[in-house]
Design a protein around this nucleic acid. Structure first.
Lengths: 340, 340
DNA sequence: GGACATTCTGTTATGGATAACAAATACTGT
DNA sequence: ACAGTATTTGTTATCCATAACAGAATGTCC
């Protein structure tokens, strides 16, 4: 039962014989080696054109050991940060002449390890990890020790192979903004603690309050989803003393705002809400969301640049590459109610 | 100062000699060929384990002609449909034992052609195109004629290699919902006409109005972005006769709603708005958005399944695989104002 | 017991490109 | 003019796994 095959195109040797040269010479022309006579170069290129020849990257990868492909590991959830980072990686890769191989994983150590292993196995030249590794960290770094790796979720175990946005500053900016407006303290809907992004936002929020001499309320936890924000909003909205909330992601902030609105709390008159991420929709929520802008797309790009540099020179020294986020003030924040 | 090399792992022959067999036998064990003695099988597996051997997929791809990789082409924009479709493709691919190679492109014919060509030369076994091809269609199908391809943006030129959600039904459902509520007619903020999704929604909206004997107002156009929705909302909100708007995507609908709100129009009391997509945030907007649910993730999965079937059997007949969307009624729609 | 099928394993050729080496030609300086 | 260097091109080996073929060992049937 031979399935009808999609025929392969011409190979280098076909071009070679068409141009009356050796395959090696064709290879040299295609790789722009200097020592090729102009006349033969033209002859080869003409043959390439005529036969519609395209170099087979698989064969090339086999012999050179470089696939010109980078692997990206993300979690199998569809949130803004994931998708815009992925986009940034793809754009960055294209600019650098690389192709992207993406795999998703669940949060379990086994799944994460498998996913990375799948990438390595697939022959990628380097890996970008955009997921919290957790207990999988040790296993994973065993696999990635042989291959350049960049991490965008500053899991401690990845040491300094880290590219991203400074999460400490993000939460500090947001918290200070609310305190500056006159709020006595700021409540916090945190992300999943497994994510180091969420963890450091939580830490900086707490530290900022302490340094300002404010009471530190107990934090609530969500899972990045709007639903989880909604649930937490239903709780916070029932507490009269809550006047300011820092939500660890814009998507959760949408849920929080919805819940507060349903409970009859006005935003920002009764309660101020700040998100983090500045997703595309943040400017168009009702009210528009004050948030912390951090470009995931840019992070993806920088991660690729770092990775490519590391592929070119594995001895390259690794230093964390963190970018500062900025505060975007919109309509969801205001001074606390007067009678408070 | 020796640069730390990223060494290659052991090869099949290393395993072979460790187990005291030939490389071919190792290959047979790994591919689960039936005719291998249980004792040697165990010996080989032990050697594999001991050396930490992982089969080199590049070499495998070269000789078998199958890379177990599928390519995905998307546009370089970060919207909900793109990212959830990509997620679905990745999940589907993993289930099918495939890996995903993604490339992004701009809308120009040249860029699209290049992108597809990049995928083919990367050695993918099949391609999923999730972008409008337009004038690039002919060029692209020249390239893809040698390789299984599935399209999720029903560009006519791709004939029947089409998987997705029935866009005609989507717009019909939405328009009828508004008419059923008692609106005299429905205005429409359409997507970019290059997208066949947008085009068919536009067509069905118009047809539905005509069949219902309603006046067909001129349509407005956006580019899928919330900003473009906002701009169109500023226009529509100024026209007193507008009581119902069908927006071609939820993301644009957010912008429309924001603009209407700024103009002092209440939703749904003054104006009803329906979106399309049912993005995660739709349930949490203010007011919650009535919309048409269509699972892009599911579309991605189905596209992969179709593609894999086609890879296994290129002679497979292609029939469009369309799924019906459903109407999700939330708070952004209501009967028209009484005095209207 | 001999012809023949079955099971297991090894050998050789192959896929398409490139690195390393080798050879032929052209060019330099003395 | 001749050794010595540069330039251009070709040959051969290699990357790693698998397909196709072949040989050895065991089992079966009359």
């Amino acid at each position: 039962m031979t399935a009808p095959q999609f025929t392969r195109g011409p190979a280098m040797r076909d071009v070679a014989s068409a141009a009356g040269v050796s395959a090696q010479t064709v290879s040299r022309v295609l790789n722009e080696h200097p020592n090729v006579q102009e006349s033969t170069r033209r002859r080869v290129l003409a043959a390439v054109e005529e036969l519609g020849y395209r170099r087979n990257n698989t064969a090339r990868a086999l012999v050179t050991g470089q696939s010109k492909t980078i692997g990206v590991l993300t979690l199998a959830t569809n949130n803004y940060s994931r998708s815009s980072l992925a986009l940034g990686v793809e754009l960055g890769a294209r600019e650098a002449g690389y192709t992207v191989n993406s795999v998703t994983s669940s949060l379990s150590a086994q799944a994460l390890t498998d996913a990375v292993s799948r990438l390595v196995h697939q022959g990628v030249d380097g890996i970008i990890i955009a997921a919290p590794l957790q207990e999988a960290a040790e296993q994973v770094s065993k696999i990635t020790s042989r291959i350049p790796t960049v991490n965008t979720d500053g899991s401690s175990s990845m040491g300094d192979r880290m590219v991203g946005v400074d999460q400490d500053i993000a939460a500090v900016l947001a918290t200070k903004h609310l305190l500056d407006l006159g709020h006595k303290t700021v409540w916090h809907v945190a992300g999943p603690v497994e994510w180091s992004d969420a963890a450091s936002r939580l830490g900086s929020w707490r530290r900022t309050l302490q340094e300002a001499g404010c009471e530190v309320p107990p934090e609530l936890h969500g899972d990045w989803s709007p639903e989880s924000g909604y649930r937490n909003g239903l709780i916070l909205g029932r507490m009269p003393e809550v006047t300011a909330i820092l939500v660890a992601s814009d998507e959760m902030a949408f849920g929080v705002i919805r819940a507060l609105t349903e409970l009859g709390r006005r935003i920002p008159e009764d309660i101020s809400v700040v998100g983090i991420d500045d997703i595309d929709l943040a400017a168009f929520s009702n009210p528009p969301l004050t948030t912390i802008r951090q470009s995931f797309e840019d992070t993806g790009r920088r991660a690729v640049q770092r990775l490519v540099a590391q592929i070119a020179n594995p001895a390259l020294e690794n230093t964390p590459d963190l970018v500062a986020p900025t505060l975007i003030v919109r309509g969801s924040t205001a001074p606390p109610p007067a009678d408070n």
